[in-house]
Computed example of a mutant assay.
Amino acid sequence: MTRDASILFSPFQLGDLVLNNRLVMAPLTRNRATKGTDAPNDLNARYYRQRASAGLIISEATQISQQGQGYIWTPGIYTEAQVAGWTKVTDAVHSAGGRIFIQLWHVGRVSHVSLQPGGAKPVAPSAIAANTKTYIESGFAETSEPRALSLEEIPGIIADYVKAAENAKRAGFDGVEIHGANGYLIDQFLKDGTNQRTDRYGQSIENRARFALEVTDAILTVWDKSRVGIRLSPVSPANNAIDNKPAATFGYLATQLSARKLAYIHVIEGATGGPRDNVPFDFLGLRKAFAGAYIANNDYTRDLAIDTLQKGQADLIAFGKLFIANPDLVERLRKNAPLNTPKQESFYGGGAEGYTDYPALDELKVP
């Protein structure tokens, strides 16, 4: 098959939205929300506006409540100040002709007592420590020991998702993505390595998927199904969340999500930020189990993205670190131009340096 780059830059109908191209800016935690309020600010608006040529931007993960926060200076969507801050962002993106969904996030056990209301323990399906690190004001630190959620608490968390979804609509987002990946709360419920409950949220696949589906159904009372997607990571060991039978677990979930006619599933293929082949998994089978759009993610190059689209193995391709370093990534890939190198030391926290100061092609005088 002759590689035809034009497919990467062709329009795509996502639900009732027409995207200008097949490139998606993946959610990227940058820890630059306003200190003290966790509200987005003018610098954040500039950052997203710079990248508005993406067919779709998915915002950085955004906590639905203080309890849902796992890292310092990440934005929320549960206060009026945060809604106002995100409105600046969506206005900036729309003024540049872009589309943006918000990623709704509850970290579950991947948190620290210093970030939790009243210094409480983080919550999780089961009281199993994450054995990973989070980012607090003093730097990286071990996550705190969690406690298991009671049955009586779960409806309150679902209500927090609903309120966040309503706030996202008020803030002008084009849609929402449910964060069901990378070892955070929904993923913790899904995977048998992190969920040892014996009630209706545990043991069987149907029970472990219940929380994800209840959150989805609740958000669908606020947003039309054509404006809702979900991110999944079937075989990623991120934040020490493992499932012993991922094909069965995520095959069932994909079928259930398909029945709800969500706009898309956004799938991390392999280990988050790591090898794509860490565990054998039939991602094409997952795509076939879901009737909506399939966004493929993880270490995609220009050539791999084109090949994957041409073979019909995905509808859209998400890029993460390349969008950090290349605000004009769409144009660079269109021209097959050189790419800026991401500066990892400025990924988390800080100001404009390593955030909004990456040069675009026209600033480099590259034809």
Rank of each mutant, 00 (worst) to 15 (best):
D224R: 08
A259T: 11
R332E: 08
T90V: 02
F9T: 10
S126N: 12
G270K: 08
D243N: 09
T216F: 01
K133I: 08
P75Q: 14
K191H: 09
K191F: 10
R260P: 05
F281E: 04
E80R: 15
L284F: 05
G118I: 11
M1I: 04
I57H: 05
P27Q: 12
D315F: 03
T308W: 04
F347K: 07
E80D: 15
S59N: 08
L149W: 01
P367A: 08
F319A: 02
D277H: 12
T221G: 08
H179L: 12
A247S: 13
Y348F: 12
Y47R: 04
D199E: 09
A130K: 12
A218P: 01
F173A: 03
N20D: 10
F12T: 08
N21F: 04
D38K: 00
A92L: 04
G70M: 10
K88S: 08
R260S: 07
H266F: 13
S233Y: 13
S236W: 02
R147I: 04
A39N: 00
R30G: 07
R99D: 02
P359I: 00
F173E: 01
A291C: 05
Y184W: 13
A212G: 13
T301E: 09
V24H: 03
A293P: 09
A130N: 13
L286D: 01
F319N: 01
Y358K: 04
H94L: 09
A148L: 05
P338N: 07
I242A: 04
A33D: 07
N131C: 11
Q313W: 11
L28Y: 13
E214Y: 05
S6E: 11
G15V: 05
I102W: 02
T29D: 10
F189P: 07
T74V: 13
P338H: 07
S346N: 14
S258L: 12
D315E: 08
S226P: 06
N297V: 09
A289C: 05
Q63D: 12
F101N: 11
W105L: 14
D299T: 10
H94I: 00
V330R: 00
T79W: 07
A130F: 07
S226T: 15
S6A: 12
L284Y: 03
K321H: 08
V107T: 14
E60Y: 12
K365V: 05
G85L: 12
D42Y: 03
P234H: 07
P146W: 00
P125W: 04
